[in-house]
Structure formats: structure tokens, C-alpha cells
Design a protein around this nucleic acid. Structure first.
Length: 189
DNA sequence: TGCACGATGAAC
DNA sequence: TTCATCGTGCAC
């Protein structure tokens, strides 16, 4: 894989924009986590946008807490949380500090050094070796970041309702899940 | 200090 | 449809 971090790593300004725009543009980008000098790389094929405290489905809807404070921090940081007693989920914090928005990464297409399934937020974190230790980690770093893909292949973006947020009333119905149409690694096409 | 439940995934 | 499994948030 041709890869030049200096050229391809996304900058802070990428994340400091409207959350839906960031969510859509994260599709096709490469998530990179280097573990024991081996770069694990996956192409992002499915995401969900969580818009802020007004979004009833977002963790930030409960306000600033010990867990959600990262979501209210500056953009371009990882928000990693533990769920159902066994899985981790990874988000990318968006918009300016205090806003409380983030994009959940739901599925990856394996590119390099990935073993096991990567379709679904829990499996994705397991394959990428992402856990609580990476919570609040800056994504503008050498070992953990997101980069533009070396060869941008064209794709069509599909949008659907988010998964597992049935309790969020009208917010449960909004089409804030985005994925690459036809990609076999999407968790729920 | 206790307890209900969840941005999941796998089995049945 | 059910269950594993435990941190978080809020009630008491």
C-alpha cells in the first residue's frame, strides 16, 4: 500500500465542520492504528452522525459527564466507550469544543494487518485493537489517525436510520447513518 | 450505595 | 428472541 502520512493524514480543520458533512466525508478514508510497530489499516465504509445534546440518541444528550466530556472537547479526538460489558465503540469528535457531537465508526473494509471481522462497531474495535486506553487520544498522531486513501475510488453514499436508538423518539427515524452502497463489509445494508 | 440499562454480537 | 457482561448515570 502506497502511504505517506505527512501528505494524507487529515488535519484538525477536517473535523471542525458540520457533523453530517464530516460523517459523509469519512467514508472511504483510512483508519490507521499502529500496534507493536505494525500499522493496522481499515477503510471506513459505514458511519453514524450524533449531532449534539439536542440529539436524543447521542450520549451528549445527558450533558457533560465523566464519560461524555471527550465528546464536548475539541474536534479530531477519539471518543471510545465500553458497551454491553464486552465491546468498545469508537467515535471521532466533530465541531468546535463545547458542541458535543461525534461520528461513530460502524464498519471497516480490511486493508492491512487486520484479522477477524470488522463489520459492526464492536468487532471493528476488536480487530483494530481499540479500547478505553485510546479514549481522548488525539487523532493527529503518528500511531493513531485517519488519512485520505491513496487511490480514491468513486462510490455512492446510502443513508438510513441509525441502529439501536429506537428509544430516541423522532431522532431515531432521522437518516443519520451513512454507508458505501454495495460494499460487502457494511454491517446492515 | 444500589440498580436498570445500553450507539453489540452471536446463538437459538 | 434471548443472553452474556459491566461501566455509567441517576435514583434513593
Amino acid at each position: 500500500m502506497q502511504y505517506n502520512r505527512a501528505v494524507q493524514q487529515l488535519h484538525r480543520a477536517f473535523y471542525d465542520r458540520d457533523t453530517i458533512v464530516v460523517a459523509r466525508e469519512l467514508l472511504g478514508k483510512y483508519l490507521v492504528h499502529t500496534v507493536r510497530s505494525a500499522a493496522r489499516v481499515g477503510r471506513i465504509v459505514e458511519v453514524e452522525a450524533y449531532l449534539g445534546p439536542h440529539d436524543r440518541a447521542a450520549h451528549s444528550a445527558r450533558g457533560v459527564t465523566e464519560r461524555t466530556k471527550v465528546m464536548f472537547g475539541p474536534p479530531g479526538y477519539a471518543y471510545v466507550y465500553f458497551i454491553y460489558g464486552m465491546y468498545h465503540c469508537m467515535n471521532v469528535v466533530t465541531e468546535r469544543a463545547g458542541h458535543g457531537a461525534a461520528v461513530l465508526l460502524r464498519a471497516l473494509e480490511p486493508v492491512k494487518n487486520l484479522e477477524g471481522r470488522t463489520c459492526g462497531p464492536g468487532l471493528l474495535c476488536r480487530a483494530m485493537a481499540i479500547d478505553q486506553r485510546l479514549n481522548a487520544h488525539d487523532l493527529l498522531s503518528a500511531n493513531f489517525h485517519i488519512a485520505a486513501s491513496p487511490k480514491a475510488e468513486p462510490f455512492v453514499i446510502a443513508k438510513r436510520a441509525r441502529i439501536g436508538v429506537y428509544y430516541a423518539e423522532q431522532w431515531a427515524k432521522r437518516h443519520l447513518r451513512f454507508y458505501i452502497r454495495g460494499n460487502p463489509f457494511v454491517s446492515r445494508p
